[in-house]
Write a protein that binds this DNA or RNA. Structure first.
Lengths: 301, 301
DNA sequence: CCGTTCCATACGCCCAGAGATATCAGATGA
DNA sequence: TCATCTGATATCTCTGGGCGTATGGAACGG
């Protein structure tokens, strides 16, 4: 790619003159006097090295060389204008692409409303959303594989910003046939001797430790009979009688025959869902999405 | 199409920097010092309105806006370079398109050699050749439907230039079985009582009048039994015995069983084939073709 | 803690190019 | 023949932008 040789204003003048085929009219359309236009065209022809127009009485005609240059000149101008417009749209945050990771349980609570609101405000933004558990989201943020994470119980990180978007209590997940399911609420201590179905600690250490902490507070260490990587699966396993579980309340949205969700006593423990982003991310869409969350919060999606 | 806003040198700097992702290296590739490059990029970012690069320790990274602008900038530069090259190729006469009309009889003499030589010298020129009789060629030149004509016996025209490329005598066209065909040469006067097969006067008035003149000089007016618009057809009609004809000597190239061509006495009359062009045609290919003809003439194609 | 790397800023120079006004010159047509 | 329309030329002004050198400031690595 060598040095560009033709100034754009001259190309613009050339295209307009090629359309008008009349120096006076073309100059008027360009908003300049006629002599400067003659000069522009002359300079352009000098640089090309050949005449682009035949001056004939009553107007001008494109030469073969001019005829060849015209489509290229048009492309150059329109490509530039559209490229500039697109870059500005992206720079301003009106358009672009945002990659969002989310914990599965979030899909039941904040995510749908957030996506709906954001898409309304930024219809030209393409959203790539993918389900990921908390730990992989943190890694993906560092990798720049995603731009926004919706994580559960994050622990602070130097490079990342977090903001809580939801706090919710825990519920006990029980087979519907289990005696404990007959009560409106259960004490954590009552789960002490039952086998547990939990997510592996690796996919969300903070949440895991919090659940373990609930049990510890009730005086026992949970015996994990089975791991599952999605809450959906946890419910299914509970249904089959493999065990019970403790989970964030939003899991109630999973309607599954044969599984009961019960408030726990004491009900003070809360789990947080937070939005996470790279602090040094300059993508304006990240700020836009954070702003959308801030505004959306009061309305409670 | 509005005013272009981004100077090309800045776009060029942008593309190079986007490839190098390093101000120092990019400046070196551009052959300038580093501070001017910083300025170029800064000015460009000011005009776009948004940052195109993220300056980070150890180098720079494209922002989303910069990433969007990059392909457009590349297209602009390459389109411009290629368009300019194409326009110059055409302006210089190395490439382009030339529309050539030719009289049918010319296809037997000058045309093949001319085309071959011209194509050798200008392989990138597209030649549109079409057979036309003389009068339509003149009209087509005025219409700018063809650029070059190869005509027989033209009459001078103000707007057109002519140059003779071939002079040839007339021959008598006879059925092989005819008694006159037994002689090596025939006198025009001997054709006086025979029916004639000729091209209509309208397709080539000058040639027609010249043939009629030959007859008048021999003391008779030809009785036209049949018209035909191609020499090929004339020969065929002569073969069937419908009449005889007088034709340019190049018609001998038509090898047709049962038709004889005989030199005529007196053999002084000559018919001319000329190349014709618009005097005010600025297409360099026209000049190139005329030059090719001038050089080719001595070798006698 | 210091040197290196990398980019930005400051300042000055210079010129290509874009604009204007005034005028000229060729072709056309009543 | 003359008025008119075409575009070209001459001349001047002004400024944006491209380039240089010198210097500043932040981040990183040993």
């Amino acid at each position: 790619m060598e040095r560009p040789e033709l100034p754009l204003p001259q190309l613009h003048a050339f295209v307009v003159l090629a359309e008008e085929l009349h120096f006076g009219h073309a100059a008027a359309r360009l908003g300049i006097a006629q002599p400067p236009l003659s000069q522009q065209i002359r300079r352009l022809e000098d640089k090309v090295g050949y005449a682009l127009f035949s001056r004939r009485p009553g107007g001008v005609v494109l030469t073969p060389a001019g005829h060849e240059l015209l489509p290229a000149a048009r492309r150059v101008l329109t490509d530039l204008a559209s490229g500039l417009a697109a870059a500005r749209a992206i720079g301003s945050g009106r358009a672009g692409r945002l990659r969002i990771g989310f914990a599965a349980s979030v899909a039941l609570t904040v995510l749908p409303g957030l996506l709906r609101t954001f898409r309304q405000r930024f219809p030209d933004v393409h959203l790539d959303i993918q389900e990921m558990t908390t730990a992989p989201q943190i890694a993906a943020l560092h990798d720049r594989t995603i731009d926004i994470g919706l994580v559960r119980e994050p622990y602070p990180e130097a490079e990342l910003g977090f903001r809580t978007v939801l706090r919710e209590p825990f519920v006990a997940v029980l087979p519907a046939a289990h005696p404990l399911a007959a009560q409106p609420a259960v004490e954590v201590a009552h789960l002490a001797d039952l086998p547990f179905v939990l997510l592996p600690r690796a996919v969300g250490p903070q949440l895991y430790d919090q659940i373990a902490g609930l049990c510890a507070d009730a005086g026992f260490t949970p015996r994990v009979a089975q791991h599952a990587v999605e809450w959906q699966t946890v419910c299914a396993l509970v249904k089959t009688g493999l065990g019970v579980s403790l989970a964030p309340a939003s899991i109630r949205r999973i309607r599954l025959e044969g599984v009961a969700f019960r408030t726990i006593e004491p009900g003070t423990a809360r789990t947080r869902v937070a939005v996470a982003w790279r602090k040094n991310d300059e993508n304006p869409l990240v700020a836009q999405l954070l702003a959308t969350i801030s505004q959306g919060q009061p309305d409670g999606f």
